[in-house]
């Protein structure tokens, strides 16, 4: 460190000498480069002032005392900058450590909560889920039943980031443990409600929409635990309808009942499931209306379901200037035949 300082002091002096003689731009450019190397070598501002003082003394031995004292005064004034700079350096290192730890956690979460979009004949599925920060507090899961039915869970923890993400792992593993004969939406929500009520801090809420699609009967059974309402697109009338449900968010009371509903899905109809990160997108300071989401979906409705959700996401990502405020999850199922 001392060696580097000495070397830098020598370079600084030479550059300064040349500049005083020639006043050329070249010297100024070189001192700019030197200044960058000072930063790289953690040379503090007070040390640079000191280099300047030393250079002055060597180049102008007869310099007035007043100037010398004033330079010492400047050096004192730079001390606090030096410490603040060092603190800033340390905090930056810490921040990048934290970031890399979180990114390990995030990729672990992805593995833990991973789900594959199933291929089912006659229906087209599109899904997109993008976290606002590194970890996702939204959750969706596909379960293909042996009877050919498709179970779809979509959940949102109120709050985002790491606590939300941890909570989701619990939900997933509870669901994995259910035997297949209790896969009705009502039964799943009843049981998850008890798990959440027992295991999760009361200040944390989880909403969930659970749907079961029966391809052979073209029926959708569903129940909701206080989740953002989904939409049904009626192709024959070209209209969107809100899917109305009753049911309290998970974990409030142990004996909440979740009514189950059923609807027929005709050819080209769509079911849209989402989280509030979609409906509460913001355009500047204004929350968008849910009609706007539906308009955008309608605009892209001619595309395959996956393309459609991707395009809708891109639209709202751009609207929010590429900075999501909440986790964004959107799922669309369309009956093809």
């Amino acid at each position: 460190m001392d060696d580097i300082l000495k070397l830098d002091a020598e370079t600084y002096k030479e550059l300064m000498k040349r500049y005083m003689e020639t006043r050329d731009e070249q010297s100024l450019y070189e001192v700019e480069q030197a200044s960058k190397s000072f930063i790289q070598n953690n040379i503090l501002p007070d040390e640079i002032v000191n280099m300047h003082i030393q250079a002055l003394e060597e180049l102008y031995p007869s310099l007035s005392e007043d100037i010398q004292y004033s330079m010492n005064f400047l050096l004192e004034a730079m001390i606090a900058y030096g410490i603040a700079h060092q603190e800033y350096q340390t905090l930056r290192e810490k921040q990048s450590e934290l970031k890399s730890e979180i990114s390990v956690a995030a990729s672990m979460q992805e593995t833990l909560l991973g789900t594959t979009k199933p291929d089912i004949e006659g229906i087209d599925i599109g899904i997109i889920s993008v976290p606002a920060h590194q970890m996702n507090g939204d959750y969706h899961h596909f379960i293909k039943g042996r009877d050919g039915s498709l179970g779809i869970a979509m959940a949102d923890v109120i709050g985002k980031g790491i606590p939300a993400a941890l909570c989701m792992s619990m939900i997933k593993y509870s669901m994995d443990s259910y035997p297949e004969d209790v896969m009705s939406p009502k039964a799943i929500l009843n049981s998850l409600n008890r798990v959440v009520e027992r295991n999760v801090d009361p200040s944390m809420f989880i909403t969930m929409f659970y749907a079961q699609y029966l391809p052979s009967e073209h029926k959708l059974r569903y129940a909701s635990a206080g989740h953002e309402p989904g939409y049904y697109y009626n192709a024959a009338n070209d209209t969107f309808e809100e899917i109305e449900t009753k049911g309290l968010v998970l974990g409030v009371t142990p004996d909440t009942a979740y009514p189950e509903y059923e609807m027929d899905i005709n050819k080209d109809d769509m079911v849209i499931m989402l989280t509030d990160g979609v409906t509460e997108c913001r355009d500047g300071d204004r929350f968008i209306e849910s009609e706007e989401v539906l308009e955008v979906i309608r605009y892209y409705a001619h595309l395959p379901a996956q393309e459609m959700v991707n395009q809708v996401f891109k639209h709202f990502e751009r609207l929010q200037e590429f900075e999501l405020r909440d986790d964004f999850t959107l799922l669309i199922i369309r009956r093809e035949v």
């Binding site: 606090a80 410490i83 603040a84 700079h85 060092q86 603190e87 800033y88 340390t90 905090l91 810490k94």
Partner: peptide, 11 residues
Amino acid sequence: DGYSTSGGLGA
């Protein structure tokens, strides 16, 4: 670092 009285002053 960054705690207490420092307030970004590194003090």
